[in-house]
Amino acid sequence: MQQLITVFFIAFTVASYVFFRRLHMKYRSPLLNVVFLGAAAVIAVLLFCGVPYEDYKPGAAIMTYLLGPATVALAVPLYKNRHLIRQYRWAIMTGVGLATAASMATAMVIARLGGLTKVVVVSLAPKGATIPFAAPVAEMMGGDPALTAAFCVATATFGALCGLSALTRLGIRDPVARGLAMGTMFHGQGTAMALTEGEQQGAMAGMAMGLAGVFTALIAPLLIPLFV
């Protein structure tokens, strides 16, 4: 029975990914978030069939097997844009480094002021990094990777909707700075939005996304214990 559940839900997860990806490609709205809608569809069917999360887990482990190699593959766009890293090294180091620390610190302060539990505070902290970095960081520090994934998706969706206009309102007009900010804070979705402004913005954003993940992983073990 467990094998049957596993096979069925792997097939269903793949199907809902394909379906919502097509929908997203067709309408291109940041609100049609593939991760959010895909997960919602799977959860709905699990609840409807009365299958607990624990029975979905073996299938989830099989499906996420290639996430490690996929994250490693982020080095490829980083390598392709290495001339940008060299050219803007100061902007990148100060900007991405401080923003990553500030994002973790402000999230944890607000969560603590709001009286949230330790697990939630820790899970919120790395949400500025892309999920493959944020989720294991949260898990190592005592958070819940699923919660972190949700916060990442919420952050990225917010960023895709409001990021570019927020930057304009804050007086950030330099194309390099705009790309860097979108990639650092709003990962993949931010990068996609930055690409709509131009090639250079997109390249900066993609690179900043990878670096922000590395910075988050390096800073988190030092920063998170100070706030929880």
Partner: peptide, 25 residues
């Protein structure tokens, strides 16, 4: 609370990275 945490902790560093990057770029 969660929404406030997500929004504020996104906008503040967004400005920070943008400002610093614009200056040093």
């Amino acid at each position: 609370v969660l929404a406030a945490a997500v929004v504020i902790s996104s906008v503040v560093p967004l400005w920070l990275v943008g400002f610093l990057a614009q200056y040093s770029a």
